[in-house]
Design a protein around this nucleic acid. Structure first.
Lengths: 336, 336
DNA sequence: CTGAAAGCGCTAACAG
DNA sequence: CTGTTAGCGCTTTCAG
């Protein structure tokens, strides 16, 4: 048995294709009796409509594009779960496209989407993304775009983010309240808005507590694990070693713990540590890791909801909104 | 500017749609000059073909369905990366569908795919999947399916897996070689082939070393974290407490470490631990965790390659193959 | 209540 | 080398 089409059903029942089509969509113009027969046959032959034929007709593919830097990251994994959970309720599917933090990839993905592959896009911009040209190009083709987590300020559209500034502030204040005087900050990007906002929170907290901030205490990390390890180790080998570290992204927890172990520094005795992270495993680290935990699942869910709403209204151009879902500071042993 | 179609280009250049179409696909029947003009205009108007129109025509959507239990799992995240890396080279896209370990979800997803939404499927079956009826139904519609990691023996198609039996054996033998006499085994499913194979390896290793195996040492865990924790704790509170634990899936590492801490048991002093896991973070656990690490990225890559090949030959019905990519035992402190 | 026919955007015979 | 035409499978007027 190959492809069962609407036409096959029609022939079998001696009806026209349009009658079948209507019956399947439960149109009021079709008699109950015919509907029954059509449905029964469809069931029996295991009929499934070809979604692309419908798409072509109705210009909606029922596919949502999710454009993110990586999947192998607990934040994005959880966010995808959230997205999927709401989207599938409405019969939508999730198409994942990875940018690997490269603007060029992001551009070519969105460019391809201009052909109509997806009905809408949920995205977190790459680390390299500073201009929103490619994003606006897509939006001009009437494909709604909703940012989640990593938004680009410059593009006027819906955004679902967390309170990065406040979180950076809270993380820093937390370490200060535990007695830290020399707090280092590990970051991974200079132009990512969420990164700068977190850092601004850090700087503001220092200022509010009369602590001097120094450029030397802000350490640039990257995507390469070995490089990051070296950077952190160098930081901890300084004469004036920091007594607190704010790690602004999850993957930086590993080098910090490794370097401390390597250098026989005690956490939290010698250095107190707090990290932005969604890792469940934070609790079983030794010492357990104090985290700023983002509501990843919630962010995904909300972003998807906002997008579906936009798809619903469509031309209605509802005022873009910015939803902020706060992160949570979970104090554990590493900030002792 | 709305949708730029091939027709718009044709009108603009006073050419026919077929000429445009051919020019865009670089057909030999079109003069270099026209090609140039067409390409230039396409570029200028930011033309992108509607993929669904092509799909309808050529019955290939250029979309690969990836059907898995969860994304929030380092194995699957890494596998997706692998899949994406090879698939995008050939212009394919990745549609993710999650079963959440429920057979019912898996069935409805595959059923929907019968409509032709995807050109091929890469899947890891859910924990509940024992029969392959829904999978065969899809394959009969000429949609090739390749299993990766969690295959269903009963279905005759390509499979890309790791050496589960040998890994279970190696894990157990490793603990035995470190002096364990009472080795418990934590599992999460009774019918998943990979789970039973790992367990068979465990049992065989015990037998080969003249150690008695006892049903009591095999602990069933589930999806609920709290439940798993309780199970593990109970295990460790027994009179005859095990001196070694083989945790057959990643998520069981957390309860083991937590319970040991709670009960003040030393790893590896009181209990030695080995876990099937891909977590990078295994190295910074205290003690660092000995793991059986699956080649997740490789498995994804290979499975995708096999699928693309199947899509290429199509009707060729190449003999199904089973590719086995071995896992690696990485000894760390927890098995001291 | 049912059917005929047009057409979504693109491709591929087949003619010119 | 370029154009005409006939669909892919489905939805949707518009007639019967």
């Amino acid at each position: 048995m190959k492809h069962v089409t609407i036409r096959a059903l029609a022939k079998e029942l001696n009806l026209s294709v349009s009658t079948i089509s209507k019956a399947l969509r439960d149109s009021y113009e079709i008699s109950e009796d015919t509907k029954k027969r059509v449905l029964a046959l469809a069931e029996r032959l295991n009929y499934m409509p070809n979604p692309y034929a419908s798409s072509l007709r109705g210009r909606r593919s029922k596919i949502i594009g999710v454009v993110i830097p990586e999947v192998a990251d607990s934040f994005f994994s959880l966010a995808i779960n959230g997205i999927e959970s709401v989207v599938k309720e409405q019969g939508y599917h999730v198409l994942i496209s990875l940018t690997h933090e490269r603007l060029a990839n992001e551009q070519s993905i969105l460019h391809e989407f201009q052909g109509g592959r997806v009905d809408g896009v949920l995205m977190s911009v790459s680390r390299e993304t500073v201009s929103g040209r490619h994003i606006r190009d897509l939006m001009e083709k009437e494909v709604p775009v909703v940012f989640f987590d990593r938004a680009l300020d410059e593009v006027e559209t819906d955004k679902v983010v967390t309170n990065d500034f406040e979180s950076g502030y809270a993380a820093t204040q937390h370490l200060i309240s535990r007695g830290c005087k020399q707090i280092a900050y590990l970051t991974i990007s200079e132009n990512l808005s969420i990164a700068t906002r977190r850092m601004e929170g850090y700087l503001k907290a220092l200022a509010d507590h009369q602590l001097r901030s120094s450029g030397k205490n802000i350490v640039q990390c990257g995507t390469d694990a070995a490089f990051n390890y070296k950077q952190v180790k160098k930081l901890l080998q300084r004469k004036k070693r920091p007594d607190g570290i704010v790690a602004s992204v999850e993957k930086l927890a590993t080098p910090v713990y490794q370097a401390c172990q390597e250098l026989s520094l005690s956490i939290p005795g010698d250095v107190k540590v707090i990290c932005f992270s969604n890792l469940e495993i934070a609790t079983i680290l030794q010492p357990s890791l104090t985290t700023i935990t983002q509501p990843a699942f919630e962010i995904g869910k909300t972003a998807a909801t906002v997008l579906l709403r936009a798809l619903d209204k469509k031309r209605g151009k509802p005022a873009q909104q910015q939803v902020i879902i706060p992160s949570e500071l979970i104090a554990r042993e590493s900030s002792g």
